[in-house]
Design a protein around this nucleic acid. Structure first.
Lengths: 166, 166
DNA sequence: CACAGTATTCACAAATTTGTGAAACGAGCG
DNA sequence: CGCTCGTTTCACAAATTTGTGAATACTGTG
């Protein structure tokens, strides 16, 4: 079965739209999805621009954003000025782990609010304390969850190898 | 210790800023934090407006958004037109569970991309498949994580009661 | 060391989001 | 049943975000 470019484009756009709806900036989301489905070796800026139908400048901005998140990287091609952009294999893992620190800093600022409330028995204090506890709990459990995923993934890969390379 | 209004305001704004940085719209974030730290009985729209220093219209919009997310509710006061808005106790729990469905729909659209790629052995297919698997895994584990939190919370409350109401 | 091909930056236009004041609406009270 | 207070809706202004074309900077090649 060959690449169904038309459906692929549509699915890329739709997935990017989901990310956008979740608060992710538009262009980075589109670039990210394009890189996700790209073949081995990633894509150049101009390939991205052509594929997404946008200017080179837009790609440059999107790429800078994604790089600042540490989920893509540049692969300088020896003997060519054309650099290829590639998504890290653990991009999503990293992104989710990173969001974890958002939970953490949110809990931290909320904890300051908790201090400022004073009376620990008040409704506001109880509510706030419970929220802080909740996010700290999630934050604490996430590493375990991710580790479990890693283990499961490694196991799958081992099985696949065991079956003589699929 | 009494309420330190000044620090409380600052902490509320800062927490709202963290939410905003994470993609949450600004005014809803501010309203949400104000309601979180509010005393028993929640706040009226005008109290929110005064506390946040914005117009009644802005509050109305923010409140509508939060209600659409199902994390606050209106408490009609008998004998008064002033309705009080209150945050649900399980607001954050709900929000996180809801985000879970975002993971799900993201995985779904990405799975469509996977189909469109065709060749399952290609780099793009491998990458995409792994991402889909990852989010499905997270999505699957989250209920368990939340249930564990519930259990822990119930246990804490029981202990507190056991110690004769703190 | 100048040239050619790419990538990045910049100023700006378009689109979207955000918040306001004024008007409309709705519920209790005299 | 009209008045009053509080909330919601609406049209619009301000601010922010998003993406473009043109100019600039960078790197390898002849």
């Amino acid at each position: 079965m060959a690449r169904d470019e038309q459906n692929l484009r549509a699915a890329v756009e739709q997935s990017a739209a989901v990310l956008t709806a979740a608060g992710f900036p538009r262009m980075p989301a589109r670039v990210l999805m394009a890189l996700l489905v790209a073949d081995e070796g990633g894509l150049t800026a101009s390939e991205l621009a052509e594929s997404l139908g946008v200017s080179a400048a837009a790609i440059s901005g999107g790429v800078r954003y994604l790089r600042s998140l540490g989920i893509i990287h540049r692969m300088p091609q020896p003997g060519s000025r054309r650099e290829r952009w590639e998504i890290f294999d653990d991009a999503w893992y990293t992104a989710l782990a990173g969001k974890n620190s958002v939970y953490g800093s949110f809990a931290d600022t909320a904890a300051q609010a908790l201090d400022a409330i004073g009376d620990p028995a008040s409704a506001g204090a109880r509510r706030t304390r419970e929220m802080v506890d909740f996010f700290r709990y999630i934050e604490g459990k996430m590493p375990e969850l991710l580790a479990d995923w890693e283990a499961l993934r490694a196991e799958r890969l081992a099985n696949r190898d065991g079956r003589a390379g699929d």
